[in-house]
Design a protein around this nucleic acid. Sequence first.
DNA 1: ATGAAAGCGCTAACAA
DNA 2: TTGTTAGCGCTTTCAT
Lengths: 339, 339
Amino acid sequence: MAQRVGIREVARQAGVSVTTVSHALNDRGQVSAATREHVKRIAVELGYAPNRIASALRSQRSRLIGFVSDEIAATPFSGRVITGAQDAASELGLMLMVVDSARDSGLEERQIDTLLAQQVDGVVYARMFHQLADVPATLGAHPTMLVDAVDRAGVQPSIVPDEVQIGRIATEHLIEAGHRRIAHLTLEQQGEARDGREAGFLATMRECGLSGPVIRVPGIGDAVAGRRAATELLRRHPEITAVLCFNDQVAMGVYQVAQAAGLRIPQQLSVVGVDDFWPISEGLDPVLTTVALPHYAMGRLAITRLEALISGQPDASPREARLACELVRRASVASPSTP
Amino acid sequence: MAQRVGIREVARQAGVSVTTVSHALNDRGQVSAATREHVKRIAVELGYAPNRIASALRSQRSRLIGFVSDEIAATPFSGRVITGAQDAASELGLMLMVVDSARDSGLEERQIDTLLAQQVDGVVYARMFHQLADVPATLGAHPTMLVDAVDRAGVQPSIVPDEVQIGRIATEHLIEAGHRRIAHLTLEQQGEARDGREAGFLATMRECGLSGPVIRVPGIGDAVAGRRAATELLRRHPEITAVLCFNDQVAMGVYQVAQAAGLRIPQQLSVVGVDDFWPISEGLDPVLTTVALPHYAMGRLAITRLEALISGQPDASPREARLACELVRRASVASPSTP
DNA sequence: ATGAAAGCGCTAACAA
DNA sequence: TTGTTAGCGCTTTCAT
C-alpha cells in the first residue's frame, strides 16, 4: 500500500503547480510567504508525505545511511551505538539501514553491496570491540565512518573510546579513595582496549609513585576470566586492596571469588569495572563502580560527522576521534581499611 | 556516489535492449537461454547492480521492511530478534529498516510515518516484553506482524513465545531431577510472561500431585528482585530444594543470597532461569540451567510470514503463533540431597 | 513569483 | 524472442 496522496493532488487542491508545491515544502526557490504557508497547510490537511523513493531517485540523494556491524545482537553492548546513530539521523532527516554480519566477512561484503544498491549516501562501519580494521574495498570512495575501530590504512575517519583515559580515571579514582596497592586484572590477548586500559593504569600508577601487578589471563573478557584472575591475585598478591578489571564481566568473576573467599566488597576489596553493562553493573551486590563506554555518543557523532562528509562540510573532529569516558560511581569502592 | 554502471550500459555492451537486460536479469519474460546467459555474464563483468530505488519506484515494491521496536538497545535481549529477521530478509531479497522508539509512543508514530514515506512494503512491530499491544492506527491497512506482542484488537497477526510451555518444561525438568518441594520466584506486576510462566508452573505441579509456593516481589525482573524473593523464600520456606526463577537476572539474585547464606548450588538448591541471557547464564558459577527464549526464530518467522502476507500467499501459521522454547541444561540443577 | 517540461534508472505494456 | 515506449513521483532547470 503506497502513499495515498501525491504532490499532484496537493498542487491541485492548493491551486498551484507541482513545482511550487515542491519549492514551498522544501523551502527552496522563490515562493511568496503567503503561497508557501497556503501550500503547507493544504499538505498537512491532506496528510501528504513525499514519496522518499521518488525524491531520492530524482535528487540522487537517498538520505539513507548504511550501518554495518559485525555483531549487533550476539553481544548486548552495541545497542546504544545504534540508538545514538538513530537519534542523530532522525534529527538530520536521515534513515538508518542496519545490517549485522555475525562476523562473516563474506556476508559483510554482500551486505555492503546491497546497501550500496539501495543507494545509501554513506556507511557507518561499526565493530563491537575496539580494533584496527581493514575497511572493505567495496566501500571504496563512498563516505564512510568507522566506529570502535581505526582504519589500518589510515584513510577513513574513525571514532573510538579513549582507552588510556579509561585506565586513568579508574586508577585515579582508586588512588583518591586512598588505595596504594592496586592490581589490574586483564587479558592475555592483546587489543586496543586491553593495551590502552593497561597503559592508562600503569602510567597513572607511575605518576603517583606507585606500582601494582597486572594479572593477565587467557580467554575472552568474561566472568570465567575474572574468576581465574581473582584466584591468581589472591594467591600471589594477597596484600592488594583494590582491583581495576578489564570489564564488568571480569568484575563479576572477582565478586564470585571474593565472596567465596569471605572477602567483603568494598570493605576489604574495592572493585572497578569498565563498560557499565547494566544487567551486571547494577545486578551485582554491591552495585559496581565502573567506567561507562560512550556508545551512545559514538553513534551520534558517527552520523553527524558522516553527514558533514556527505554534504561536503568541513569536519570539526580529528580524523581519528577519541571520546572521553565517564566514571559511574556506585558502591564497590571504599577507602582501604587501616591494616 | 551512486552506482557506476546502469542498465543502459549493460544493454549497450551486450548488444541488446534494456528491456531484454531487465527480463534476463530478473528471469522474467521470454528471453532465449543464450541471450539470458550472455546478458548475465556482461552484467557480472561490469559489476552491474540494479539501482533499487529506481526499481522500487517503478515496480511499486520497495522490498523494504520496517522494523519498529520499543527498545533495541536499552535492553540487550532483543538483538537476536533482529538478527533472525535480518537473515530471513536477506534470503528473500528484502532489507530491514530498524527503528527504536525508546518507549516514546509519539516518537514511534513519527518513525512509522517516516518508514511509510520510505515506501516500506510491510512492518514488523516488535515489543521487548511479551504484552498485549495497541497497534498504532497509522499502520492501518499496511501489512503488519507483531512480535512478542498480541494485537489487543485481535486483528493483526502475531508471534510470541509460549510462556506456559516455558513454565512447564522448566518445572518438569526439576521434577524429573527428583525435586518435590519447588518454588516459583516471580513478579507482583502481572503481564503475559509472568502469568504464563506461573500458570505453566502451577499446572505442572498440580498434574504431578505437587504444590509449591509462588513468591511474588515488586519491581522489575532484575537481580534486586531475585535477592528479595530469595530472602523471603529462605525465611518462609526453608524446606524448598529447587526454584524456578522468572528470568536469569532473578536467578542471579538467588545465587547471591544463596552464597551469602552458605547454601550451595546445585547441591542444596537447584535453580532454573528463563531467557538464556548469556552474560548472566554463562557468567554465573555454576553456569545456569535456563529456558532460552526463541528470539531468533521469532525474528525469522516474522519476516517469512510478513512476506507471505505482502505477496498475498496463504499464511501457514495461526494468526497468533506461539513458539516453543528450549531448556538449556547447564550446571545449576542436581537431584535433591536425601534429607 | 510561478509554471512547463525534462528527466532520475528502472519495469512492463504493447509492438514488432 | 526482442525492442519501443510510457511512465513510477518527485526535483530542477529554464521560461514566463
